[in-house]
Simulated scan of single mutants.
Amino acid sequence: MTDTFHSDRTLLEEAAREAGALALSFFRRDCQSWSKEGGSPVTEADFAVDRFLNETLLAARPDYGWLSEETADDPARRDCDAVFVIDPIDGTRGFMAGDERWCVSLAVVRDGRPVAAALYAPALDRLYTATAGGGAHAEGEAIAVSSRREVREAAIGGPKGWFRHDTMQRLGARHAPYLPSLAYRFALVADGSLDGAFAKPRAHDWDLAAADLLVHEAGGRLTSVDGQSLLYNRESLRHGALAAGNAVLHPELLAAVHGVIRDEERAGQAA
Rank of each mutant, 00 (worst) to 15 (best):
L230F: 10
A183Q: 02
M1W: 06
L188N: 07
D63R: 04
G135I: 12
F198Q: 07
A15I: 15
H258N: 13
E100M: 00
P177I: 13
A82N: 05
F52Y: 07
Q228Y: 00
A256P: 07
S7N: 12
E235M: 04
M1P: 10
D3T: 15
Y184C: 01
S25I: 10
A244V: 05
F186H: 15
A203I: 03
S25T: 11
V109T: 05
G135T: 14
S229Q: 10
G172L: 01
V260S: 02
P122Y: 00
V189R: 05
D50W: 06
S33T: 14
A155M: 14
L213C: 12
R202K: 11
L171T: 01
L254F: 01
L171P: 08
L253P: 11
A256V: 02
T167W: 04
A16G: 08
G91E: 04
R234P: 04
V248G: 13
A60P: 05
H258V: 12
D191Q: 05
Q169D: 03
M168T: 10
D99M: 00
P201F: 11
D99F: 00
H137F: 15
D81C: 06
Y64F: 15
E139P: 04
C103R: 00
R149H: 02
R28S: 02
A16W: 10
C80P: 00
L182P: 01
L12C: 13
A97H: 01
V248K: 06
F27K: 12
L11V: 15
A48Q: 06
R113Q: 00
A123W: 00
L208I: 09
G112P: 06
L237E: 04
N233L: 04
H175I: 13
A154I: 07
E139W: 00
A72W: 02
D207M: 03
A118W: 11
A173H: 02
P88K: 02
L57E: 09
I89D: 10
A155C: 15
S146N: 05
S181T: 14
D87R: 08
L249V: 10
G245M: 03
R266H: 08
L171D: 01
A136E: 04
A23E: 04
Q269C: 09
G157Y: 03
G140I: 14
A190S: 09
E264Q: 09
L12D: 05
Q32Y: 11
D30T: 07
G268C: 05
R29Q: 11
E153L: 13
T167I: 08
E100V: 08
P251T: 09
I261Q: 14
S40R: 01
L231A: 06
A154S: 02
L208M: 00
G219T: 08
R238S: 08
V225W: 01
D63I: 01
E70Q: 06
I86L: 12
G158I: 12
E55W: 01
P41N: 08
A187F: 11
I156D: 00
K200Q: 13
S35E: 15
S146V: 03
L208T: 06
L179K: 06
G135Y: 14
